[in-house]
């Protein structure tokens, strides 16, 4: 059986119908375990004190902010190449979720930055990049809203997503060029010596898994809603025509 069979809306609805509660359950479990473990059963960092614990929200949401865009890019490509409606609707469904993760990353970053750097906001390359990513999300969502015909909207937003990805990447490097910044380096790469200590790392991994599952659950749910809305529209349009 080909994986593309799940691109059939009916099949998608049926299979995600029973999958979704499990994904929700797993997401809830991971987040519950990860966050409680992270917040109450890890020691304070010797330099940053207990403020460091915000990484359990900050890091996973920042990761998902980018991953959501990548997922939208892949879904857009699938739509452009194979014309599977579910794919286009999944991209549409993922955008507000990705935007929310981006905003969470920015807000938690500000809350963390205040005690650490003494300022709520700095034009640090990574913060700036995330701010720019927010703008890309807003533009993408606005274009979906503005175009009436759903297939036209799917095509146009897919083209925007493609071009936007290239420019988002360019912006990232431009921003790095523009300001070297004060952000601490990525602390999760496996081979790095200055990795965060294991005590922080394991609960963080659980939290990341939780955020990934949460993202999947939200996107599946929103995609199902979009499919139903689309189906409803088609029925109404047909009704009007008949």
């Amino acid at each position: 059986m080909s994986i593309w069979e799940y691109a059939n809306p009916k099949k998608f609805m049926a299979s995600t119908g029973w999958l979704l509660p499990w994904v929700w359950g797993m997401a809830g479990l991971c987040l519950l375990v990860g966050l409680i473990w992270g917040y109450f059963f890890t020691p304070d960092d010797f330099r940053q004190g207990s403020t460091v614990k915000i990484i359990y929200l900050h890091v996973p949401s920042a990761m998902m902010a980018i991953n959501a865009w990548v997922m939208m890019l892949v879904a857009s490509l699938i739509w452009l190449i194979r014309r599977h409606h579910v794919s286009a609707l999944a991209a549409k469904a993922a955008a507000p979720v990705g935007l929310t993760f981006t905003v969470i990353a920015l807000v938690t970053g500000a809350l963390w930055g205040q005690p650490m750097w003494g300022t709520w906001w700095a034009w640090d390359p990574r913060l700036t990049s995330f701010l720019i990513l927010t703008l890309f999300y807003l533009g993408y969502i606005a274009l979906w809203q503005a175009v009436e015909n759903p297939d036209t909207a799917a095509d146009l937003t897919a083209v925007l997503c493609l071009v936007g990805s290239v420019f988002a990447l360019l912006s990232r490097y431009a921003v790095l060029f523009w300001n070297q910044g004060l952000h601490q380096g990525a602390s999760l790469s496996l081979d790095k010596e200055e990795n965060v200590a294991d005590v922080f790392w394991f609960p963080l991994l659980v939290c990341i898994a939780g955020f990934v599952l949460l993202f999947v659950a939200l996107v599946l749910m929103r995609t199902r809603t979009e499919i139903r809305a689309r189906r409803l529209q088609a029925l109404i349009a047909r009704e009007r025509l008949a």
């Binding site: 809306p9 009916k10 409606h85 189906r231 047909r238």
Partner: peptide
């Protein structure tokens, strides 16, 4: 239409 077709 293409979308409805998929529901059959």
């Amino acid at each position: 239409g293409a979308f409805d077709e998929a529901f059959q």
